[in-house]
């Protein structure tokens, strides 16, 4: 009887200590689900979803506050990936948050720019170079196309230009067999 109690108590102690040690050793920082969702989001940081950036939106999805169809830059494919990850039903993009557009980058008309620095403050990824009363310019490689710099510009000199196809980023098309229209032959006429 006493032996059994000692054995059980000992076991409980050892297992408890192991669990306690494991919880300290293998502690996860933050929510791993948020990171997984964040990895799917396109990181434009545009705020079209209603949250101030991709990470807050990911947190909101993980917390069940936001739906998975609020990210227009991620597009249909993004919604599908999120649905796959979260085991939810796919649903089309919510038009309230905007529509899916081809990837664009902002371009400053340098002749019109007055150097007010408002766009620099608006850019979430520090892709705009310039200083007060100096011309500003956008580093195209860093621009995510979030359009956040467009509304603050008092001179209205920022345009969103779709990214051009180059030899480097050109993609092979999906193979489609072209049906050729053949001139109709009229057997009656040929015979005549």
């Amino acid at each position: 009887m006493i032996t059994a109690l000692i054995v059980m108590a000992g076991l409980a102690l050892v297992l408890g200590a192991t669990l306690g040690a494991a919880s300290v050793l293998f502690r996860t920082q933050g929510d791993p689900l948020v990171d997984k969702i964040d990895a799917i989001l396109p990181q434009t940081q545009c705020g079209q979803c209603g949250y101030p950036g991709c990470k807050p939106y990911a947190t909101a999805i993980a917390g069940g506050e936001a739906d998975i169809n609020q990210c227009p830059p991620g597009g249909d494919e993004g919604v599908r990936k999120l649905a796959d990850l979260l085991g939810r039903e796919y649903k089309p993009l919510n038009a309230e948050h905007g529509i899916e557009k081809p990837k664009s980058v902002a371009v400053i008309d340098e002749a019109t720019c007055i150097g007010c620095t408002l766009c620099i403050q608006a850019c979430p990824v520090d892709a705009i170079v310039g200083a007060a009363k100096q011309m500003h310019t956008i580093v195209a490689d860093l621009c995510t196309g979030c359009e956040l710099c467009v509304p603050p510009c008092p001179a209205d000199c920022i345009d969103m230009v779709p990214v051009a196809e180059t030899v480097e980023n050109w993609k092979w098309r999906y193979p489609v067999f072209e049906l050729k229209v053949q001139p109709a032959t009229l057997p009656a006429k040929e015979a005549a």
Partner: peptide, 10 residues
């Protein structure tokens, strides 16, 4: 591109 944008945003 998304990874670098995340890094810059953070």
């Amino acid at each position: 591109a998304a990874d670098s944008a995340r890094e810059r945003f953070e």
